[in-house]
Simulated scan of single mutants.
Amino acid sequence: MKLSPSVTIEQSETGLEFIKVASEFCDATIFLQGAQITEFTPTGKKPLLWVSQQEDYQEGKGVRGGIPICWPWFGVSQHEGWPAHGVARTGLWRAEQVKEEENSIYISLSLPMNQIDEKYWPHKTKLLVEFILSTSLEVRLTTTNLDSETLNFTQALHTYFPTPAIEETKVDGLQGSKYIEFGEGPFEQHDLVSFARETDMVYTQAQDTQRIITPDGIIEVSRENSRSCVLWNPWIDKSKRLSNFADDEYHVMLCLEAANVLEDSVELAPGDKHTLATSLRWV
């Protein structure tokens, strides 16, 4: 189905529908399941997002790569048996708007809340994600409180980035911030971050922009309304335990996530909106 000159809806071999963008300035793929963008490649540049070669795109399972949307909780729920990272990343979203302009394409999707089991989220809310695609990518996740009471939630845009060699990759822009790792801390980040072991850091008081320095070039990552950011690489042992992830793929990826987690959870008063956003580009 053609939505605009550069945008179509297609279907994967496993039956999942996705929005395909093939424009003069970028190529992109956005699955309706999870509203998950799995491909963004500016014309003439390398991909800005990473997806595992082991990914099999199954119904009801989050994709290992791209930008999973974690909402209304991040990580493992305190309730046993509840889905990791919330209900948004496996929900079936609805395409709302596609608008093609001279230098960008705007795509928005909403999550029909009547498909969410009330035991997970009994509140009246509206959830909208917007993608602004040009030579860069901007993703905006807006939560609107339609309820009569204040809501509290955590969230993340769980972005997977590519690198040809994690051991030769560094992250700049976290110096001076505090971080928690494996439940310990806070510690202060003094230097650029390099990778030589499993990394699972939640940063607070970080600058709004970081740079991932890879052998393929520098990726600039900006965040908005993100009081936390998460840096993750599973390294050797955890890679062997992950689903849809090859044992050696920790060499070629990392996650740097716009987030509001732990003590930085969002409190949203009745009638208010909150937009978490991230922007990515090759420098």
Results as ranks from 00 to 15, higher is better:
Lys99Tyr: 13
Glu80Ser: 13
Asn103His: 14
Phe161Trp: 07
Cys70Gln: 05
Gly65Ala: 10
Glu149Gly: 02
Thr143Asn: 00
Gly65Trp: 03
Thr159Met: 05
Ser148Ile: 08
Leu133Tyr: 12
Trp93Thr: 09
Pro164Val: 03
Tyr179Gly: 13
Glu59Phe: 12
Glu181Gly: 05
Cys70Asp: 08
Glu59His: 14
Asp147Thr: 01
Phe161Tyr: 15
Ser148Asp: 14
Asp172Arg: 15
Pro122Lys: 13
Gly75Ala: 11
Ala84Asp: 13
Asn114Pro: 03
Gly91Gln: 09
Tyr120His: 11
Leu127Lys: 04
Leu157Lys: 03
Leu151Glu: 00
Thr163Trp: 03
Gln155Val: 04
Ile132His: 11
Ile69Leu: 15
Thr144Ser: 14
Ala165Ser: 15
Glu118Phe: 05
Thr143Ile: 04
Ala88Gly: 10
Phe74Arg: 15
Ala88Tyr: 00
Gly65Thr: 02
Thr154Phe: 08
Gly81Tyr: 12
Thr125Tyr: 02
Glu102Arg: 13
Thr142Cys: 00
Ala156Val: 06
His123Lys: 08
Gln78Val: 03
Lys99Phe: 14
Ile105Met: 05
Pro164Tyr: 10
Val171Glu: 12
Lys124Ile: 01
Arg64Thr: 01
Glu96Asn: 09
Val139Lys: 09
Asp56Arg: 13
Thr135Met: 13
Arg140Asn: 09
Pro122Tyr: 06
Glu100Cys: 04
Gly173Glu: 06
Ile69Phe: 00
Gly81Pro: 06
Val171Asp: 11
Phe161Gln: 11
His158Ile: 05
Gln58Asp: 06
Ile180Gly: 07
Asp172Ala: 12
Gly66Asn: 08
Gly176Lys: 12
Ser148His: 12
Gly66Tyr: 06
Leu157Tyr: 00
Gly81Leu: 09
Thr135Cys: 10
Ile105Val: 15
Leu92Asn: 07
Thr143Gly: 00
Ala88Cys: 11
Lys126Tyr: 00
Asn145Met: 04
Val87Lys: 11
Thr159Ala: 06
Gln54Trp: 10
Glu100Arg: 05
Trp73Glu: 01
Gln115Cys: 04
Met113Glu: 03
Glu80Met: 05
Arg140Lys: 14
Glu55Met: 13
Arg140Ser: 12
Val63Ala: 14
Leu137Val: 05
Glu96His: 07
Phe74Tyr: 14
Glu96Gln: 09
Phe131Glu: 08
Glu181Asp: 08
Pro122Ala: 12
Leu111Gly: 03
Gly183His: 13
Lys178His: 14
Val129Tyr: 05
Met113Gln: 06
Pro164Ile: 02
Gly173Trp: 13
Tyr120Pro: 02
Pro162Val: 10
Ser148Arg: 08
Lys124Val: 02
Phe153Pro: 00
Gln78Ala: 13
Gln115Trp: 01
Gly173Val: 07
Glu138Val: 01
Arg94Val: 09
Leu133Thr: 12
Lys170His: 09
Gln53Asp: 15
Leu92Ile: 15
Ala156Gly: 11
His158Met: 10
Ser108Phe: 00
Gly62Ile: 10
Gly185His: 07
Leu141Asp: 01
Pro164Met: 09
Lys119Gln: 11
Gly185Phe: 02
Pro83Ser: 12
Glu59Pro: 10
Arg94Cys: 08
Gln78Phe: 01
Glu181His: 03
Asp147Arg: 01
Thr125Gln: 11
Leu157Met: 10
Pro122Gly: 07
Ser104Leu: 15
Ser110Val: 03
Trp93Asp: 08
Gln53Met: 10
Tyr120Glu: 04
Val63Tyr: 07
Val139Pro: 04
Tyr120Phe: 14
Lys119Val: 12
Trp121Glu: 02
Leu146Asn: 11
Thr125Met: 09
